[in-house]
Design a protein around this nucleic acid. Structure first.
Lengths: 198, 198, 198, 198
DNA sequence: TATGAATGAGCGTTCATTCAT
DNA sequence: AATGAATGAACGCTCATTCAT
């Protein structure tokens, strides 16, 4: 459920040698995460290789494109965010409350990733995979929450999940590095703006 | 009011040759504007020089940093936007209505400038001047409108002009090139979220 | 007659496991042949390994250099070509006719091997083995045919087998991919040029 | 007539500054020629820059593609070769004799250029300009000579100028570095093969 | 013996910036 | 004042080859 490359039965069938590669891959993920924090997700491939203490080719082997690496680094958190949607819907007082909380989770995720929000809106080909993954995982969840809130009459129905996600994502751009700018507050306003004027 | 490099008394002290330089500078502005539309504000310096039919050095002479050039290109429009604030406050039904309309002006400005919104949040040193100019001109106007609306009890008072500007700017990032994303709608939601729940 | 690495008495001394290795080697040859057709003889080693379903190291074990692999792949055909020389000499009306036909066989061979002709003339060290094998097998045959034709007075005697082979090989470079270039026709002219002006 | 960038009246109209660039460009041509001799025309761009003592960008400025550089280096000689065609036709005893001599010139040119012959047949995109230049300049000349010889009944008419040039070019591949291979002799045979059997 | 993960030299290319003319 | 030639750091990427498992 969390690594993607290997199926559930991995432990039994994988060749023993895989252990090394796995260690290396994880070292790579750690290193990439560290570099992403330090220099943003656009950091030179070489920096990540150096941080991980591996060769350049090793990165390309494991993650043919930069997007693949970013996805791998943040996969767990994105998945967790996606999983949280239905859970919140079940546990919250109202669908709108669930939506708010869920958006908060998403913001928490983005704000702590230096530059990730910015790359999410880049029309740069080569990030298509990254776009696709984020959209595939999160937009349906957001859409579901919006529909529920609309059905409950709490909000209007004129905004799509995709558009809201993009808006929230954009609001998180540059949220670190600027103490005068609190993305969370802005997002709250945005979500507040959804509420139906009763 | 429009050139910035020269003080008010310019006409008296300038050497006669200045006319050429001025012509050059204006050609540069036109060219830069054209290139910005075509390729965004990150276009290679060379392209702008080529479009203007001047040398590379000439650009650096007039506009030491890219930000200086961007400012110069959009100065009139930014100034117009700034000037519109008080006017709208005077002519609109309520301060909040003025705020909404003014924000719309700002969005109109940003959305039509390929990539300008993105550069506004870049923490890239070298855009400091650009930041500063935008903030100096527009934040006070925005603050003024916010205060008026807050004084009228139409909105809460927990948001600063700077923060709102940044949020709106962010929402405009990537607004072209994506038909499924309408920055204006998102901004409306954001501004709507300001309204005090009475 | 076909494996080359092992001497005539091989069957007696080999360890029992050898059968696996042999199967592997043959799979490798088939795979290489397929890849050579598809991408030329300069295809990345990886592609061949992938096609064969074996590891990279296996290829290097069996064929330390690319030339070794190329030789192995085309050995049968080269041998057949070499064997055809004496046969044609015996069956043709005149030695010169035999020479012409034999050269045609060689051209047929080269033209169908994407890029082989080009590599034959490369002075790239590491193709020495390839050169050597081709020369060892074919040059004597060509020389023999030339001598017979010279002895019959059909051609002059001022060209060496090596030189003619090289010339023919060169004429075949790039013969695919260009409809306006027919290597066979050029080779016919070249061979025609040998004929003694009576 | 020889430099291409500048028209005939260059000396009068060029800005004075051009002198430096011209010196540099010529140094570049010299350096490239030297490196081409040493390492072939596929030599790394960096090597040429180092040899010339200039920066990498300078090469790209003057010669955006490698083909442009090769053309520039050999332009004079190619032009001279093209110009020699009509002259030989006028001065030789017969058209066929002119053709033979002209082909010899072309061979002389190619054989002394390490690797140039090889690149001429490469279907590598990016050498299109080079191909085009060679074909544009030389094929018509060759065609003209062939036609004259055919009209004089000295040769058949079943070969196109393009095909002959390609054949001759191919025969010249790898002609240096191999004392046992004399491209000139092979080409003579090829051209000899054209002669009509009367 | 077989594997394929790892390496890293090497390449082409771009572009902001400097500075001689 | 204006030019634009020159620079070279930096980057993404490929692939032959080695070697631990």
């Amino acid at each position: 459920m969390s690594d993607g490359d290997e199926g559930a039965g991995r432990t039994r069938t994988d060749p023993p040698k895989r252990k090394d590669a796995r260690r290396n891959k994880e070292a790579l993920l750690d290193a990439a995460a560290a570099v992403f924090v330090r220099s943003g997700v656009d950091a030179p491939v070489r920096d990540i290789a150096a941080e991980a203490g591996v060769g350049l080719g090793t990165i390309y082997r494991h993650f043919p494109t930069r997007a693949d690496l970013i996805i791998a680094v943040y996969r767990h958190q994105v998945d967790a965010c996606a999983d949280a949607g239905p859970a919140l819907l079940a546990s919250s007082a109202t669908p709108y409350a669930a939506l708010r909380e869920w958006i908060n989770l998403f913001v928490d995720f983005l704000v702590t990733k230096h530059g990730l929000a910015a790359v999410l809106q880049s029309d740069n080909a080569g990030f298509d995979t990254l776009h696709a993954y984020f959209l595939d995982r999160l937009v349906p969840v957001c859409t579901r929450l919006l529909e529920a809130a609309a059905a409950a009459g709490e909000i209007g129905s004129d905004i799509a999940g995709y558009e809201l996600m993009r808006g929230v994502g954009n609001l998180c751009i540059g949220a670190d590095n600027d103490l005068r700018y609190d993305a969370r507050r802005l997002v709250e306003l945005l979500v507040g703006g959804l509420r139906r004027p009763h």
